[in-house]
């Protein structure tokens, strides 16, 4: 790399990578941090906003389920058994006459917890390891990658059953089982991104400018690597939800009558011919949650991407 070029790129990188906040802020608005700026960009993105709102709404629905749900989730109604969706029961009733809508509202509790909670664990373990590995790219990388490779080689289903068999049933153990088996994908992904990004000119530039490794990773590399990570985490949400459902089959999941979306799908899918709506609505809910999370994630990434403001 010749001196001239690197010099030029250093300047370029300084403007792009060292945050819009500086240029933008000095031009138009009073002092603004990166995150505040990102926030403004995020709410300007309508799709992301909608996604975020839906996620928040589902979360609120889970929290305030007892207030929202028109019927209790566990109380059978024998005068209204397995009814198709109608005015009284917009999503129908199940085999013991429990309102599917109410069960969906309550089901958001477990599903949000499992779906998002497991992703938090996955993120917290996977990204630091992947980042460290990809950033150093030397001996540390080799050692970490050996470890990741060993962990990675375990088929997830088998390993989750193994962990649940060892730990016993319960919601928190489901978190652990899914988290412990899921982080490896994120770690590999993060590393791959970092390997690619660290060669980029603006990183070279920032490094040459004397940015600390911590600053390099958190400010420069991570935001640029966030896209695939967010996508992967998004896919992790329904995966975790269905893993939870699968564990209930084997007898190591959560106990009835507490509903979860995954369980509702898993329990009723074989009755698709008889009662299509029993599995359909929770499946739609899972899809909605995932889609909202995707849009929100994309928006978040765009918001964090400094290049976006140049358009």
């Amino acid at each position: 790399m010749d001196v001239l070029r690197s010099h030029r790129e250093e300047r370029l990188a300084a403007t792009t990578a060292d945050r819009a906040g500086l240029t933008l802020g000095s031009l138009a608005r009073p002092h603004r941090t990166l995150w505040r700026d990102a926030w403004h960009r995020l709410i300007a993105n309508r799709l992301a906003l909608a996604g975020g709102i839906v996620v928040v709404l589902i979360a609120l629905m889970a929290i305030f389920a007892p207030l929202i749900a028109p019927y209790p989730y566990d109380k059978p109604n024998y005068s209204a058994v397995s009814q198709f969706p109608n005015r009284d029961f917009p999503m129908g009733t199940d085999l013991t006459g429990r309102d599917v809508l109410s069960r969906m509202i309550y089901g958001a509790q477990v599903s949000m917890l499992v779906g998002l909670g497991a992703q938090v664990i996955v993120f917290l373990i996977g990204v630091p390891i992947g980042a460290l590995s990809g950033y150093t790219a030397g001996k540390v990388d080799t050692i970490l990658m050996r470890f990741v490779e060993v962990m990675y080689a375990f088929p997830q289903l088998l390993f989750v059953i193994l962990i649940m068999a060892a730990l016993g049933r319960g919601l928190q153990n489901i978190f652990i089982a899914i988290g412990v088996t899921g982080w490896v994908t994120i770690a590999r992904l993060t590393r791959a991104e970092f390997l690619s990004i660290r060669e980029k000119d603006y990183i070279q530039a920032a490094r040459a400018a004397g940015a600390s490794p911590w600053r390099l990773i958190t400010r420069h590399m991570l935001p640029n690597a966030l896209t695939p990570i967010i996508v992967a985490l998004t896919f992790g949400v329904p995966e975790a939800i269905f893993t939870e459902a699968g564990l209930s089959f084997i007898g190591v999941g959560i106990n009835p009558p507490r509903p979860s979306w995954g369980q509702m799908v898993g329990e009723y899918y074989i009755y698709l011919q008889s009662y299509w709506y029993l599995a359909l609505f929770p499946a739609i809910a899972i899809a909605l949650l995932m889609m909202s999370f995707t849009f929100f994630g994309n928006g978040l990434r765009d918001a964090l991407d400094p290049r976006m403001q140049q358009r």
Partner: peptide
Amino acid sequence: GQLGQLER
């Protein structure tokens, strides 16, 4: 036979 298919 499954209970959930009986009605049908």
